[in-house]
Design a binder for these strands. Sequence first.
DNA 1: CTGAAAGCGCTTACAG
DNA 2: CTGAAAGCGCTTACAG
Lengths: 340, 340
Amino acid sequence: MSPTIKDVARKAGVAQSTVSLVINEGKHISQATRQKVLKAIRELNYHPRRSARVLATRKTGNIGFILADKYFYQAEPFYTRIFLGTEFEARKHNYYVLLTTVHEEFNPKKSIPRYLMEKNVDGVILTGKVSDALILYIKNSGIPVVLIDYFPKEGKFPSVLIDNLQGAYEAVVHLIRLGHRRIGFIGGTIDHPSISDRFKGYGQALEEFGLPKNSSLVAKDLPDSSAEDGYRAARKLLKLSTPPTALFATNDSMAMGSIRAAREAQLKVPDDLAVVGFDDIEVATHTHPPLTTMRVPKEEMGTLAVRKIVELIDSGDKFNEKTLIATELIVRGSCGATKV
Amino acid sequence: MSPTIKDVARKAGVAQSTVSLVINEGKHISQATRQKVLKAIRELNYHPRRSARVLATRKTGNIGFILADKYFYQAEPFYTRIFLGTEFEARKHNYYVLLTTVHEEFNPKKSIPRYLMEKNVDGVILTGKVSDALILYIKNSGIPVVLIDYFPKEGKFPSVLIDNLQGAYEAVVHLIRLGHRRIGFIGGTIDHPSISDRFKGYGQALEEFGLPKNSSLVAKDLPDSSAEDGYRAARKLLKLSTPPTALFATNDSMAMGSIRAAREAQLKVPDDLAVVGFDDIEVATHTHPPLTTMRVPKEEMGTLAVRKIVELIDSGDKFNEKTLIATELIVRGSCGATKV
DNA sequence: CTGAAAGCGCTTACAG
DNA sequence: CTGAAAGCGCTTACAG
């Protein structure tokens, strides 16, 4: 059996509670005893049993990380990288991150992660679009919640979001500056706020530069935001009598699908059709030509979400701040700004 | 405060230990009391606090899942899908899976996941190539270990592996049957057993069909097994005076890189160069042409690993069985078996 | 078949 | 500044 706090106390010749105080950096411990205790800990290679600590403190040291399962199956390591960001940051704060996927629809019988039932988390990070009912359920249970990359239509929540409007605006302005005047929009499910914000950014850029808004150039509400969706949407746009000379897709998968559509239509990217995506997923560098896109700092989002939830847990505050994270334009071959 | 076992006992009018027996499906409980207790549990919406249970049983209910961090950054959702398989299966057995990444080199100060120090897992699943020293360290600590998709040169371990030899053999035979006689091999780090087994499968297929083994057609030991590596290796092979007419790449990323190299060399895939990959990652369907590859059942590997480790935990056995999982040839456009 | 009691390994008032 | 003791919420021999 590995050593317990009692063994340490005995070895150091002090009370068990003294050992505990040393470990938890309590005050009122003389340097001498502290050193004695630390020495005993080192010699025994003692590590406090987490479960005992949990029971005593009534804090679990766990953070739940909830993700709609459909994102997990996607090719893009987008949310997994956000998760990785949370994992790294959580270590620093001595928390574990419990990753669980849920189905998109809310089903109180199935959608509620075990750790909520078992009171096994101190806070929950919800990432991407999940059922609003689930979010409300958790929030109402009194446990701190932080949202990443999703925000329900109603309610207030602490959240870490992409500055989608600004990002889309910059992407489209980039195309306009390259001389494009007919810029198509290819977007996923518009009921996802990220997407509607990107649509707004698109519109704002057109407006500001005095370009007409042409609804025939807009393909919205694509079911899955998948490469296949992007492919189909782009194919339609390219069949117009006066097709767009550039496309802004609200994610890289759809941008990649668009490139495929262009190739099939015997169009050259970027010469005949410029394409800009969003997210900067890994494979965006492998397309032909490599994709120009808006980079989203994924790990950073996870880091900030953990800091936020740890603060909420520690302070007991009920603040509902939104944190907007800026994106960055990554110019590669598909927009025509550089020659391939 | 949410209800405890005491509240249930009081409400049901029985002893606390009786409630515990009902929950843990102990025998010797009359139907009548069982029903009373179950009713009280339902009415109070009682859920046993996991931490208390952990402390009492000295079992944590957690399984560690260790992955080299470099895999997590890869575009391929390969190991993440294995993880997902473990998560689903773990739920059925009432375990949590704690996902942690480690650096490739073993550093006892940094590489040892917290949950091992804190005795916070009952078993550990190690996935992909991780430091042999880490594996040994964990195994020697007495905790059950199951390896997925990696096996050290020395030692015996329970493991869930891809049948790499057979898979590679089938992939190459497929190319041979399509009429190819000069088949190149593009492989990652040969010190990874998966890769060397795939190389063996390649050689075995050539031999069996009486084709010469030509070392100039073999590009081994590529540093990262990345698309970039595949691209560079293929470019070299295609510059040979008599270049290969087909390539077998030991993963899809390298196969995709190879396709890019072919395109740059003005070669048509599959007419001038047939390509077969390995893994069947999502993006393999998005290449042009879509990639023919060997599908690896990723979730299934995770499922089997969990079953195996739960059995080891429960039984206390020290068996070291290898489980080999068969791959499946997925024919798409890049091999020339179907017309695009 | 059921109940009283000890114990898992910590933390935390409370005394001193 | 340090120690003795209670308590966190379960499970598990042990009696009955």
